[in-house]
C-alpha cells in the first residue's frame, strides 16, 4: 500500500504487527467534505469575477489549488491510518508528515465511542474513539465500516472488562 517503508518509518512499524487499514471510502468521504466546503466559495469568486473584475478569478484559482493539494494529501493520508489489535493493547497509527503511534492498553479503556456523521453515514463509515482516564489519549480510528466498528467496540469493551484495574 501507499505507506513508504523507508528506514525512517521503522519506529512506527513494530515487529510482528499486522496493521489493519481503514476503508478507502474514507478518502472519498473527506474529499466530498472538502469540495462541499470550498466549491461554493470558488463559484462565488468566479461569479464575482465575471460580474466585477477579472482579477477576482485569482481567488478562485487559489481555492482550486488548495483543493487540489488537499485532494492529493487525503489520498496519501488515508492509507497511513492503521490499527492493530495485540494481545494486551491496541495500536493506532496515523499521519505522514507528522506521524504518531498510540498504544492503548485494554485494561486502561474507560469507554469506547462509535460515531458517524451524515457524510460518514452516506459513505457507510463510522469512527471509533477510545477513551482512557487521560484526556491526552488521542486514539481514534476513522473510516471503519459500521460492522467492523461495532465488532471492534464490543471486542474492546469485553477485553477492557476482563483486564480492568482501577486508575
Amino acid at each position: 500500500m501507499g505507506t513508504p517503508s523507508t528506514a525512517a518509518a521503522e519506529p512506527f512499524d513494530p515487529e510482528g504487527v499486522q496493521w489493519q487499514r481503514v476503508s478507502p471510502r474514507l478518502a472519498a468521504a473527506r474529499r466530498t467534505v472538502l469540495v462541499a466546503f470550498w466549491g461554493p466559495m470558488a463559484l462565488v469568486a468566479l461569479g464575482l469575477a465575471v460580474w466585477l473584475t477579472w482579477w477576482i478569478a485569482l481567488a478562485a484559482v487559489a481555492v482550486a489549488a488548495l483543493v487540489g493539494w488537499q485532494w492529493w494529501l487525503i489520498g496519501r493520508q488515508v492509507p497511513a491510518w492503521g490499527y492493530a489489535e495485540r494481545d494486551d493493547d491496541l495500536l493506532v497509527r496515523h499521519g505522514l508528515l507528522f506521524r504518531s503511534l498510540v498504544v492503548v492498553p485494554y485494561g486502561r479503556l474507560q469507554f469506547v465511542d462509535v460515531e458517524a456523521g451524515p457524510v460518514d453515514r452516506r459513505f457507510g463509515l463510522a469512527r471509533v474513539q477510545l477513551h482512557t482516564a487521560s484526556t491526552g489519549t488521542d486514539a481514534a480510528i476513522p473510516g471503519l465500516p459500521p460492522a467492523e466498528a461495532a465488532r471492534l467496540r464490543d471486542r474492546l469493551a469485553a477485553r477492557g472488562e476482563a483486564r480492568l484495574a482501577g486508575l
Binding site: A8, P11, F12, L97, F98, R99, S100, L101, V102, V103, V104, P105, R108, T132, A133, S134, G136, T137, D138, A139
Partner: peptide, 8 residues
C-alpha cells in the same frame, strides 16, 4: 494510561 510516539 497510554503511550504515544510522535515524529515531525
Amino acid at each position: 494510561q497510554s503511550l504515544a510516539l510522535h515524529q515531525g
